[in-house]
Simulated scan of single mutants.
Amino acid sequence: MDVELVRLQPWADGDFWLLERLNSPEMTAHLGGPEGEAQLEARHRRYVGLGRGCMYRVESAGSGETVGSIGFWEREWRGETVWETGWGVLPEFQGRGLAARAARAIVDVARAAGGNRYLHAFPSVDHHASNSVCRKAGFTLLGEVEFEYPKGSWITSNDWRVDLQG
């Protein structure tokens, strides 16, 4: 079986084009829809300057092509500080297992970063592909939660978690 590997490259100034590609109606259907230009520019600045955690451009290790993004950052969740992760794979690269491989890689990176015991992902309950990524990447489903994303908008999400000390 030929498994396509991924490589994580820290988010850089020149990666704004990827954020624009990931901002399509198709890619943001489960995230409240596309953001405006000012919101995208602010997001890009956050990605470049992320203090605790890191955003990455995901590359196919074989071809070097950029296939998407993934990252992890700190958030407060149920009274404790945890890592949260999120990802996106460009449409032309979907269905190849790249997101699950990137998610397994981000688990390793978050584990090495230390500081927080748990890494969570909060895909919408209706986002079957992202929930499948969580399952394939070894996350444990804790159940449904009401989750605010984007700010001011509440969605029903699944709370998936990896114990980074386990």
Rank of each mutant, 00 (worst) to 15 (best):
Q39A: 14
L98F: 14
E80G: 05
Q39T: 11
Y47T: 02
L31G: 00
F16Q: 04
G88D: 00
R96M: 14
E20C: 07
D15L: 07
E92L: 03
T66N: 05
G71R: 02
G14F: 04
A100I: 02
E37W: 14
L40W: 12
A38S: 15
R78P: 04
P91D: 09
R75K: 07
R75T: 12
R104E: 10
R45P: 08
V58C: 05
L19F: 09
V67M: 08
A42E: 02
A102Q: 11
P25G: 06
W17I: 06
E20G: 06
T81A: 09
G71D: 04
S24H: 02
G49T: 05
V82R: 15
G14S: 05
V67S: 06
V67R: 13
G53T: 01
I106N: 08
G62Y: 13
P91Q: 15
M27W: 13
V89M: 00
M27E: 15
E65F: 12
G14A: 01
D108M: 08
A100P: 11
S69L: 09
M27D: 11
G14W: 06
F16P: 00
G33H: 11
G86N: 01
R46K: 05
F93A: 13
W73Q: 12
G88Q: 04
D15C: 04
R57W: 12
R21P: 04
S69D: 10
E84S: 15
R75W: 03
R7I: 03
V67L: 06
E80P: 00
E35P: 02
G86Y: 05
A12N: 07
V48T: 13
L98P: 03
P10W: 01
L98T: 07
W87C: 02
V48E: 15
F16K: 08
D108T: 07
S60H: 08
P25R: 06
Q94V: 15
P91F: 14
S60D: 15
E84W: 15
G62K: 05
E84F: 15
G33E: 02
D15P: 03
Y56P: 11
G88A: 09
R101A: 08
A99E: 07
R43W: 14
